[in-house]
Design a protein around this nucleic acid. Structure first.
Lengths: 150, 150
DNA sequence: CACGATTAAATTGTCCGCAACATAATTTTG
DNA sequence: CAAAATTATGTTGCGGACAATTTAATCGTG
C-alpha cells in the first residue's frame, strides 16, 4: 500500500495553495496599480478610500473600515496622510463627537478622471473575458464571506 | 441619449473591482491563517518560507524570493527573525560567498505536522468543492502571470 | 439622574512589502 | 589579467496591516 495512513499528514505544496494564489495575485495587482497610481501621488489603499468616498460621499472612519475591511490602526494614519496631501477633509461630527467624518476635497475630486483612466489601463493589461473576470470576482467574494463567517 | 461619451470615464465601483476581491481574499486568508499559525509562533509569510524549504531543502535567499515573489528587503529581516526563533539556519555559501544558504533546523522540521493540521483546518472552514478551488487557483495564477508579463 | 456598558478614534508595537541605495563577490570583456 | 558589468545580499525609509490598549463620547438601565 502506498497509503500513508491518516496519522501522517504532509504540509501542502506551495503551488497547490489557493491562499498563496490569492496572496500572489493581490501583490501582482498592487504592483500594477502602484505603477499607474504613483504618478498621481496615490497608494493602492488610498485609491480604495477615494473609490468609496466617491461612491458614498462623506462618511465616518468606521464606515470606510467596514467597506475596505481595515481597522483604525491602518486608516487613521492613512487618512491623515491623505489630509496632508489635500485630498480629503476630516472633521468631528457635531451630533456624535466620537465620529470623524471624512469627505473628498476639490483636489480629491479632480483625481476622478485620471484615476478612472489608470484603472482602465490595468484592466486592459489583464486580457481576460469580462465574464471570466466577473465569475472570478464573485468566487473570491464568496471566499471572503466564507472565511469571515468562521 | 444617456451615453456620456468616451471622454468622460467614471471610476469603477469598489464592488466591481477584481483587484479588490483579490485584496480582500488575501486579507481574509491572512486572518484565518493568523489564528492557527499564531499558536505555533509563525506568521503567514514565515509559513510560506517553511513550505518552500520543506519542498526544496536548503536554498539561497534569492530562490526563496523567486518562489514567493518577495525581495530581500522583506526576506532578510524575516529570515533573521526565523533564525532567532531557531527555525532556520543561514550561512554563506562556500563556493559563492554572495549567497546566503537557508535551511530548516530540527525545530523547524518539528512544525511540519502541526502546520499540516493547521492548513487542513483552514481548508475545511472554506467549504468549496475541490474542483472549484483548483479552477480558482489556476485562474489567479494566470492573472499573476498576465500582470507580470506587462 | 447616575453608573456601567458600548462605541469611535487614536495610539503603540510588531511585522510585512517594496523602492532606492550600498557593499561585496563574481563574471564578462577588452 | 584588469576594468566594467552583473549578481546576491544587506540597509534605510516609508507606507500599510493588525492586535492590544487608551481615551472620550454616547447609550441603557435602574
Amino acid at each position: 500500500m502506498l497509503d500513508k495512513g491518516v496519522e501522517t499528514l504532509d504540509p501542502p505544496r506551495l503551488s497547490d495553495q489557493l491562499c498563496f494564489a490569492a496572496y500572489a495575485a493581490a501583490h501582482a495587482f498592487g504592483k500594477a496599480y502602484r505603477e499607474v497610481l504613483d504618478p498621481l501621488g496615490l497608494t493602492y489603499p488610498q485609491y480604495l478610500v477615494l473609490l468609496v468616498l466617491w461612491e458614498d460621499g462623506e462618511m465616518a472612519v468606521k464606515d470606510i473600515g467596514r467597506r475596505l475591511h481595515l481597522d483604525t490602526g491602518t486608516l487613521t494614519p492613512l487618512l491623515k496622510r491623505m489630509e496632508a496631501a489635500g485630498l480629503v477633509r476630516r472633521k468631528r461630527s457635531l451630533d456624535d463627537e466620537r465620529q470623524v467624518r471624512v469627505s473628498v476635497t476639490g483636489k480629491g475630486r479632480d483625481l476622478k478622471k485620471p484615476v478612472a483612466d489608470a484603472c482602465e489601463h490595468v484592466a486592459c493589461t489583464l486580457e481576460l473575458p469580462p465574464a471570466k473576470v466577473e465569475a472570478l470576482r464573485a468566487s473570491l467574494i464568496e471566499i471572503v464571506h466564507s472565511l469571515g463567517r468562521r
